[in-house]
């Protein structure tokens, strides 16, 4: 296993127009690690993901992925370097079938390529959805397609934004299982969640963001156990 972290975010400051959203955020994700990014809504979690992806590039600071500097690089190059994204609104293309949506995600990268067979193993129901139009999928189905699409991009790092949002408990369990499976395959995951409990159950480490600043960093166990500290930090 590589001693260098797979992803290293170093003191980034990000703005929306003239409004500053991130005031010096730093975090790391190691190879094969699942890391949670927690905090209340509006804290800057999604902005951090968008900065990593180059959709809302950081104005200051640096971001390194797999040994390369990806700060402010074009998004499609960052994606091709092995970063996949599952946004909180899934963003499946409604005018295409499931099969086409998945195919759009397929690309090669320095990391492990997934075969459709492997994808179907994880998402058993997906095989039957392939020719459906994406307009009428349920929330759980959409999430499944979004994650499968992300995996077909051969990621080394998957950015999951609120993966359990709006999903039924059974589907939530499926998502958790998937995340654990990714870890087994050696793929790193950065998971953004408002509902800390769930995220901490699958994560190795966690960061807590508040109002654009890093408030706390530690192992998931620490956070799960540090009772009142957790409550104060996360408002739970």
């Amino acid at each position: 296993m590589n001693s260098q972290p797979l992803l290293s975010v170093d003191n980034i400051e990000t703005f929306y127009g003239e409004t500053q959203a991130l005031f010096g955020i730093s975090l790391e994700v190691g190879h094969g690690e699942v890391v949670a990014l927690l905090g209340p809504s509006g804290a800057g979690k999604t902005t951090t993901l968008r900065s990593i992806l180059g959709l809302t590039p950081a104005r200051k600071g640096r971001i390194y992925f797999n040994g390369k500097d990806i700060t402010r690089k074009p998004t499609h190059k960052i994606a091709r370097a092995g970063v996949s994204w599952v946004p909180d609104d899934r963003r499946i293309f409604p005018s295409l079938t499931v099969a086409r949506n998945l195919k759009l995600g397929r690309k090669r990268s320095p990391f492990h390529s997934w075969k459709m067979k492997e994808i179907f193993e994880i998402f058993t129901a997906l095989e039957y959805l392939m020719h459906r139009d994406c307009e009428n999928l349920s929330g759980g189905e959409m999430q499944m397609v979004a994650i499968a699409r992300a995996l077909l991009g051969s990621p080394g790092l998957v950015l999951l934004d609120e993966p359990t949002q709006g999903l039924a408990p059974k589907i939530v369990q499926d998502v958790m299982k998937t995340i654990k499976r990714l870890k087994v395959e050696g793929i790193s995951v950065l998971i953004v969640e408002q509902h800390a409990q769930l995220a901490l159950e699958v994560s190795d480490r966690a960061y807590v963001i508040g109002r654009g600043e890093m408030k706390f960093a530690g192992s998931a166990e620490e956070l799960l156990q540090a009772g009142h500290q957790r409550r104060v930090l996360l408002g739970m």
């Binding site: 946004p87 086409r100 759009l104």
Partner: peptide
């Protein structure tokens, strides 16, 4: 065709298309 799918996707959501590695 795949190209057509890319065009449709690009018309619908240019950010997501970039995040999938497509050169917008």
């Amino acid at each position: 065709t795949q190209l057509g799918a890319i065009i449709k996707a690009g018309a619908h959501d240019s950010e997501m298309v970039r995040a999938l590695g497509i050169n917008l």
